[in-house]
Computed example of a mutant assay.
Amino acid sequence: MTVTTIIAIYVLVWWVTFFAVLPFGVRSQHESGDFIEGTDPGAPAIHRVWIKVLYTTVISAAIFAAMYFAYVYDLLPLEFLKRISQPPVS
């Protein structure tokens, strides 16, 4: 696996993880009671994006490490993946 492939896969895992982590701990302005005139009541009162970026980086690094470990030690052989992805034989 080339360095470019490793980076591309990590970036994909990072973005998917980021969108999964993004809604954690969000309280809307309506829920918190701190409503600012002219804004959407569903907008977050405090977004804390940098904390979520940090969480995303740690979680995606763990996910990528597990994926890389499975690839290097051939825990999911290509023949097995081909066999389970075929349509059932009737």
Rank of each mutant, 00 (worst) to 15 (best):
M1T: 04
M1P: 07
T4E: 05
T5P: 00
T5C: 01
T5G: 08
I6H: 12
I6F: 05
I7P: 02
I7W: 07
A8T: 12
Y10K: 09
V11Y: 13
L12N: 13
W14G: 13
W14C: 14
W14F: 15
W14T: 12
W15A: 15
W15Q: 13
V16S: 11
T17N: 11
F19R: 12
A20H: 03
A20P: 00
L22H: 04
F24A: 07
G25M: 01
V26Q: 04
V26C: 01
S32F: 01
G33H: 09
D34I: 10
T39K: 10
P41I: 03
P41A: 02
G42C: 00
G42Y: 02
P44K: 00
A45C: 03
R48S: 10
R48G: 04
I51E: 09
I51Y: 06
K52A: 07
V53G: 03
Y55Q: 09
T56N: 01
T56W: 00
I59G: 01
I63R: 08
I63V: 15
A65G: 14
A65R: 04
A65H: 09
F69R: 14
A70Q: 10
A70P: 08
V72E: 15
L76P: 05
L76K: 08
L76V: 14
L78Y: 02
L78N: 06
E79Q: 09
F80G: 02
F80R: 09
K82H: 08
R83G: 06
I84N: 05
I84G: 06
Q86W: 00
Q86D: 06
P87I: 05
V89W: 03
V89Q: 04
V89I: 05
V89P: 00
S90N: 15
